[in-house]
């Protein structure tokens, strides 16, 4: 390293000038992530659901997935195993035994919860997942690189991935029927439900409705609206007659799922001050040491 002190300052000045031109606020560096007061949601009353799986049928129809015939969905043997949303099933219904009343098992529909503070939106490296104004958390095929970090991040383990496709494998998950709901339509599963177990509406009204239902029927429901506060709140919420843990719905704190990771991330990069300071510090050490070396040699 042959370099005079003057050179050092010259270059360092140039770098400083370059860095000050960088303004992180200017860059549109985050995907759409709106929490509208009027965001929509769905309240699932698991005490009403009969496990007819019409919602699975309608969902496939609405998303161009082969449906088969409606009779296939009367087959209740699928309930023997716990099922999860898959690349060919954005929603599935699971059945659990009811200790209070063994003749009426509890059926729980599973799909993307459409979190208010979605971990997948925070995690996605290219901002391919966004939270829309109507509450939908949707995925953009034009951006996705298939890294599957959203699957790592999801607190409900919902997104599925097309592992057996070499070209354009998709991240597959419930999109709240965004193509229908954005124009005022209602989700396919809500539309088909013969029991009206699913109620589609504004989220804040659904929360009120849920608590009213609990207050009117304190014997029927446990006093807990799953999704009201879990991971900071979700657009889809559940009512049930027994503890949600026993219905394969994970226990979560009220902290938004992105948790401390976003705060840490922004702390490290606050206006590029920490990295720039580290650069200056190291540069200073390098320069001082160089000075010392030169004077030792008698310059």
């Amino acid at each position: 390293m042959k370099q005079s002190r003057r050179d050092f300052f010259k270059t360092a000045g140039l770098i400083g000038a370059g860095a000050s031109g960088l303004n992180p606020e200017k860059a549109k560096a985050a995907p759409v992530n709106i929490i509208s007061d009027d965001r929509m949601g769905v309240l699932i009353d698991t005490t009403v659901c009969i496990g007819c799986r019409r919602c699975e049928y309608a969902c496939k129809g609405a998303h161009d997935i082969p449906q088969g015939s409606l009779q296939d969905y009367d087959d209740r043997s699928v309930f023997e195993k716990l099922r999860r949303p898959e690349i060919d099933a954005l929603t599935v219904v699971n059945e659990f035994t009811n200790s209070k009343d063994p003749d009426t098992p509890i059926d729980v529909k599973v799909q993307c919860m459409h979190c208010d503070y979605p971990a997948c939106v925070s995690a996605c490296i290219v901002g391919a997942i966004s939270k829309q104004e109507n509450g939908s958390v949707i995925w953009d095929t034009d951006k996705c690189i298939g890294c599957r970090y959203c699957m790592i991040a999801c607190p409900f383990q919902v997104p599925a991935f097309e592992y057996n496709k070499a070209l354009q494998p998709d991240i597959v998950k419930c999109d709240f029927c965004f193509d229908r709901t954005k124009d005022g339509g209602i989700p396919a599963c809500v539309e088909i439900c013969p029991m009206e177990a699913l109620t589609y509406g504004k989220r804040f009204e659904l929360v009120k409705l849920a608590h009213k239902k609990i207050a009117n029927n304190p014997d029927k429901y446990i006093d807990h609206v799953y999704g009201e506060t879990e991971v900071g709140g979700t657009s889809w919420m559940y009512l049930a007659s027994k503890d949600f843990k026993e219905l394969a719905l994970p226990e979560h704190s009220d902290e938004p799922a992105p948790g401390a990771s976003e705060a840490l991330q922004h702390g490290i990069f606050k206006y590029f001050i920490p990295p720039a300071s580290l650069f200056a510090l190291l540069g200073g050490i390098m320069w001082l040491g160089k000075n010392k070396n030169e004077s030792e040699l008698g310059e």
């Binding site: 860059a27 549109k28 925070s122 995690a123 996605c124 490296i125 901002g127 970090y149 976003e262 991330q265």
Partner: peptide, 9 residues
């Protein structure tokens, strides 16, 4: 395609 919130980014 930036997402400043993403650690992976």
């Amino acid at each position: 395609m930036w997402n400043g919130n993403s650690v992976m980014f």
